[in-house]
Design a protein around this nucleic acid. Structure first.
Lengths: 122, 122
DNA sequence: CCAATCCATGAATACATGTTCATGCTAGCA
DNA sequence: TGCTAGCATGAACATGTATTCATGGATTGG
């Protein structure tokens, strides 16, 4: 345990336009508060749609719509158990991605406005 | 050398709605192909607006607009040198965040559609 | 100074998207 | 077999946003 992953990809060679498109599309799964909350819930444990709706304070319909998006992006999978559908993260890498994103937000406090450059340097 | 960072944040305790909002807003910087390409360029080296426009195949005006967003999110900083404005990443953590995102897209191939759950399990 | 270059910005537009509302489908219970 | 609970889905709507166009500010070179 305590296994080491770097989880990074060298970008010194640049990236293609196609890869940029894929990155943007994937990352977009985390670009809305509702989906972040849904995924954060699923990190803790699998949930039904109704449970998710309660935890993230959204209507059931809205949750279903967002779950559909997350399914299409390969972030979550749903499995039917009787009348309920249990949703869970597709794999542990999804949890890692979210954990990394949260880490960056908490530690590298971004979001501070930076004015347009006016003064000359050098 | 070879220093170890985990770069993750334990989510077993859940996250607040405010944190989810911040995560979504921050991650949104990487949720568009144009901004991903701009940031990927800046990972390699600082660039002027005109250089960025050439590399990412966008008009100068569009690049300026996106740079403004990235500035406000604390992702990049611009410094005036004569007639040019040199843009660079705010710090190396931004590069790490992008590198991690690209890593996930390349290794954990998401984006495969998953049908709505129909069959019953158990 | 004047012109040219580099960049920022506001308005306008086209487009994507998140939510709600209404409805339909599936599975279990009486 | 109705009937209800849990969930999915389509339409409508409001909102956000990325780009283009036009323009203005800043700076240097002539």
């Amino acid at each position: 345990m305590g296994q080491r992953h770097e989880h990074t990809r060298d970008l010194s060679g640049g990236i293609t336009a196609d890869l940029a498109r894929d990155v943007a599309q994937t990352v977009q799964a985390l670009s809305t508060p509702s989906r972040v909350r849904i995924l954060a819930c699923l990190v803790k444990s699998p949930c039904t749609v109704g449970e998710l709706a309660g935890e993230v304070e959204m209507e059931q319909s809205a949750v279903s719509h967002q779950l559909r998006i997350l399914r299409h992006l390969g972030f979550v999978v749903g499995e039917r158990h009787g009348r309920w559908v249990h949703y869970r993260l597709h794999d542990e890498h999804i949890a890692t991605l979210l954990e990394e994103a949260v880490y960056h937000v908490e530690h590298v406090r971004v979001g501070i406005v930076d004015p347009a450059p006016r003064a000359s340097a050098s």
